[in-house]
Design a protein around this nucleic acid. Structure first.
Length: 122
DNA sequence: GGGCTGACCTACT
DNA sequence: CAGTAGGCCAGCC
């Protein structure tokens, strides 16, 4: 089983692949991306992996948000504005640096399992 | 080997 | 909601 030992770059590719799989108008959390990439509890690694990709990369890093759907950048940061602008450009409503994962959160095949029938009340 | 840092997460206070 | 604490992952000194 040589597939067990994966290099750091291979893990990065796995992360980038997952992020590329996020459709426009949808967002994912670091933990969720890590889980889909086979990196359980590697949410921190996801941020590190996204930070090392090129600016002209085809990876929609802006579709990756923090756990509560919040942008992990500082409010007065340039990256924060860029991410928020990109999200809004994809019809994703960003309110006070936060995105409603209830509507824009992407969950692959577990959509109807988790959010198929969202609770009517809060 | 230890210690610090980072685009993190969960839980508690 | 803010702050704190512990726990993940990897890299660097």
């Amino acid at each position: 089983m040589a597939t067990k030992a994966r290099s750091t770059e291979q893990r990065c590719e796995a992360v980038w692949t997952v992020v590329r799989g996020i459709p426009p108008g949808r967002v994912m959390t670091y933990g969720q991306v890590a889980d889909m990439a086979g990196l359980a509890r590697g949410a921190r690694f996801v941020g590190w992996a996204l930070g090392r990709l090129a600016a002209d990369s085809d990876v929609p890093w802006h579709r990756v948000l923090g756990a509560p759907g919040r942008i992990s950048f500082a409010r007065d940061s340039e990256a924060f504005r860029r991410q928020r602008d990109r999200l809004q450009a994809e019809r994703v409503r960003v309110c006070r640096g936060r995105v409603d994962l209830r509507e824009f959160g992407w969950h692959d095949a577990l959509d109807h399992l988790l959010w198929g029938e969202p609770p009517a009340d809060d």
